[in-house]
Amino acid sequence: MEARDALEMARGIGADKPPRSLRSSSPRYGEKVIKYVLVACAVLSVLTTTAIVVSLLVPTIGFFEQVSFGDFFSTESWAPNLEPPSFGVFNIIVGTLSTTLWGLLVAIPVGFLSAIYLSEYASKRVRKVVKPILEVLAGIPTVAFGVFAVTFLSPLVGDAVPGFIKTPPFAAGIAGLAIGLMIVPIISSISDDAMRAVPGGLREGAYALGAGKFTVSTRVVVPAAISGIVASIVLATSRALGETMIVLLAAGKSPNLTLDPGASVQTMTAFIGTTATGDIATGTISYDTIFAVGVVLFVMTLVMNMISIRLVRKFREVYE
């Protein structure tokens, strides 16, 4: 009885076929409006870039009307707010390079080896604990690293190696150490993803030839994931170059032309961060200097980002 009812009902479905018109039943203006709204959202990102470029370039042009290229890149002293001012940007570029270098010296081995451990050695259980911890720690604000550097790392190193820090508590190496800790999760997380994306077949092939875990990790997995690993390092470098709060707190304000980890240096970001606080007047040479330095920093990080994007894309093409 029920089965026949069901059959009857099923018959009913075919019975009231809609008319066979293939034209739109409604103009669907909503669909089009939504699409344009979404396009507008996406275009906003392009406008942001344009705004950044314009807001950097206009005052920079003003800056170079007063200061020559030669003075900017070859003077050996940086004192834009003194009388008479000097604009040797090279000093603060080296300051930035110094903190970045010391940071990378810490972060590359630690991040890279952690990634190998997570991807090749760690058991599922360990991975499940360590990886989220590292990711959560990536969310620690940089001002916290800065406070940590100046209140803990600096006295610690100062006591351990007396005389190392020339002008306590400020030192490029201390800021670098804190920057290094900050960017470890970037390197380990992206490198780990890259290594885990290496197909298992490659590993099995090497194991089948009698290779051990060490050989497989270093000779098979790392070379196969190299572009992803390099991308993570490049990205971390870009982050280190642009880091502001740590260097403001721990690297000091002296634009010394040195790579000595014990010396106080001023970075480009620290210069911008100290000079632009307070109600700085538009149109003055100090105001324009911020933007000229900003252009240098922007170009440096942009190059890094482009390299990293290209490497990641290359890596994705190979394995995805």
Binding site: V46, T49, S55, R239, T244, T269, I309
Partner: peptide
């Protein structure tokens, strides 16, 4: 592709540069 590349690049611009953008724009 331009929009896509743009977004990827913007994600890597240092925060202090956004500060400059905020100040000037």
């Amino acid at each position: 592709r331009l929009i896509e590349l743009n977004v990827q690049n913007l994600a890597g611009v240092p925060s202090i540069i956004y500060g400059i953008l905020g100040l000037a724009f």
